[in-house]
Design a protein around this nucleic acid. Sequence first.
DNA 1: CTAGACCGATGATCTCGATCAAGAAATTCG
DNA 2: CGAATTTCTTGATCGAGATCATCGGTCTAG
Lengths: 239, 239
Amino acid sequence: MAYLEHEANGQYGAARAAARPMAVATQPTFEAFGAKLTKFGAHDVVYYEGDEAKRLYQLASGTIMLFKLLPDGRRQVVEILRPGDIFGLSAGEEQDCTAETLTEATVREVDLKQVEASVDLQRQLTKCLTNQMNILHEHAVLLGRKSAVERVASFLMYLVPNRGGGVGCVGPDPSKSDDGCDLQLHMTRQEIADYLGLTIETVSRVVSDLKRRGVIRIDRSDKIHLNRICGLCQMTGIH
Amino acid sequence: MAYLEHEANGQYGAARAAARPMAVATQPTFEAFGAKLTKFGAHDVVYYEGDEAKRLYQLASGTIMLFKLLPDGRRQVVEILRPGDIFGLSAGEEQDCTAETLTEATVREVDLKQVEASVDLQRQLTKCLTNQMNILHEHAVLLGRKSAVERVASFLMYLVPNRGGGVGCVGPDPSKSDDGCDLQLHMTRQEIADYLGLTIETVSRVVSDLKRRGVIRIDRSDKIHLNRICGLCQMTGIH
DNA sequence: CTAGACCGATGATCTCGATCAAGAAATTCG
DNA sequence: CGAATTTCTTGATCGAGATCATCGGTCTAG
């Protein structure tokens, strides 16, 4: 029985966890499908939770967050979208999240009828959804099992181009002196906290701590320089 | 600006959060596509995290969990699958999760090539993925923002037929005396803990507490009777 | 320039859930 | 059946992160 053989590696066979999905290829776009292009300013709402879900959206440029609210005001940011990501689909009649821009953004809109009809569109859709699903899985690990430091480190690594969340990290890469990187967050401490399932104070403290330890440098509160990417990656909990 | 108008409702416009997605319609199946049917015993592994992702699976009967591991053994159960749910797709070459049965289960397998080719299959796929994505969003709220009691209450409500997670709850329903329900968990306390981002002890304590308060009755450790569904629903944090 | 609003940093304290430690109950197996 | 093993429960203690409180910095409006 495969299960037993596996158990030899520890409680859940943690040794197998070393194999991890690699960063994902470029995402398809819906350009070719005569999608309507809409422009939004920073901090605009594209739709609210509860609005009728009748269109498919794809982010063409900028950054958008999807969040959900509890009636007492607690908020959870469930996805941070990048160009190529799709949103606005819902299993029910209504949107399950609010979509709000973090920066200026342009969005492609396609009618759901049109989606139904096109094989190509469906194929691309599947690819996008699968990709976003994998990210949601990784985020569930972060929210369910990681410490505050690990969450912030994972978040920063997620913003490093081609290193989504430290996933696929190969350890210190001596072949390149790429161990520095400038990040533009486009998010307030509150938005970061709501994404990481923390409070604003904890995020602030952890960031200060990373600065004190020399792992990062803070140029402006939303502009952070990573001094040692690999050092940061070691703090994400995935090593 | 829509944002400002919205803000009148509180920090994030919590008032809008009342509108929630309804329970989802029956899921499509891939029966018609000549899928190969495989039978698994309880606690069998369908595939491991890191295995090559080359097939699409759909759960035909039984229950399966998808989980991810951190190298130090921390585990997060990211999805609990029900008949109709699909799994095994990955953005990369490798599976991002381990899939393990909770009960005996039968699984339909379709080759990825075949998926690419069929419009119908794609359409159904989109529907399944969208549904599961919505559940992942809800679960992110649970992991990021809910208390231990709210998590356990939400989990139990999630198992009540037609009341997925208390979503779409309409308050005490006096038209039916349906305020009781027998649940078969098919999960150990450890598995529940790993799904809810808690420890086994906390899950055990909360369950004992719900029993003490008369909200539930424990017939066997994995067989729980809900005495007052609405009372439980009130504890999920969504009201 | 000042006043006001907002955002972020940081100290003090508290609390919920984790951790540590036994037992009790259920399940498996000889 | 009883012994061994696993799972669950419960108590005691601890600590990471939440909460509360304050202050400094920055941006905007007048």
